[in-house]
Amino acid sequence: MSNTTILRTRGLSKHFAGFAAVQNVDIEVAQGSIHALVGPNGAGKTTCFNLLSKFLDPSSGDIYFHDQNITRMQPADVARLGMVRSFQISATFPHMTLLENVRVGLQRSAGLAHQFWRPTRVLKRLDDEAMRFLDLVGLVAQPDQLAANLPYGHKRALELATTLAMNPQLLLLDEPTQGLGHEDVEQVTELIRRVAQGRTVLMVEHNMSVISRICDRVTVMQRGQVLAEGSYAEVAGNPEVIAAYMGESTEEMHA
């Protein structure tokens, strides 16, 4: 793990009609790490996540990707820089095949996004690469299946394959194990560990056992502010953090 910072925020704040959802947040994500953003419900994790991926504009503060200020950029342009997000509810293209789903992630950089006069078969040259990503997430068996027909856990995997097709330096994962059964949680966790090789991952996550196993660093948020930051062991032993989770469920922290 190198010590360079890939993503950094300074005084990041977001107000909704007077309510401060995120207040003065400073986060540093180290390149090559798996970094978790946790906190009780309503702590501002998802708002913070949407600010980082530029799906929301901050009220004040700045966001830097490497050393570039990306605070005023469009979400699509941030993605082009190599910072690609996922969604809380699995985001696939349901009426497209698995292969087509992954190809959407490849088309733009291949210069095959605007051509309205050429047949779809020109996209076949992307098939081999798309199959590699399907193989990586274990979905290579039925590339012509429609995404809508996949079980939920596999949709998560497909979403990840599409994200990887963008060759992102930084993956922003919004609750990647949300709504998954026990076995699927295991598989998706393993998958994240695998695809994090050579990349950086910042994830919002509730499942503490997932975090304890794969995350290098944890930032705990409460009421829109950073409460604590450190390794899982440091954070889990922090009395303030334990207090914040009291009334939620203490077991959650120690699951």
């Binding site: 799906f55 969604f87 696939t92 293209f93 959407v104 996004a113 605007h114 309205f116 779809t120």
Partner: peptide, 26 residues
């Protein structure tokens, strides 16, 4: 042909899940 072109594929992606398509750089 437009519907069945590379552009058509992106259009279909946009209509099925616009935020996701944006997150892929479109």
């Amino acid at each position: 042909r437009i519907v069945r072109s590379p552009f058509g594929q992106v259009l279909q992606a946009v209509s099925e899940n616009e935020p996701r398509t944006i997150s892929l750089g479109y």
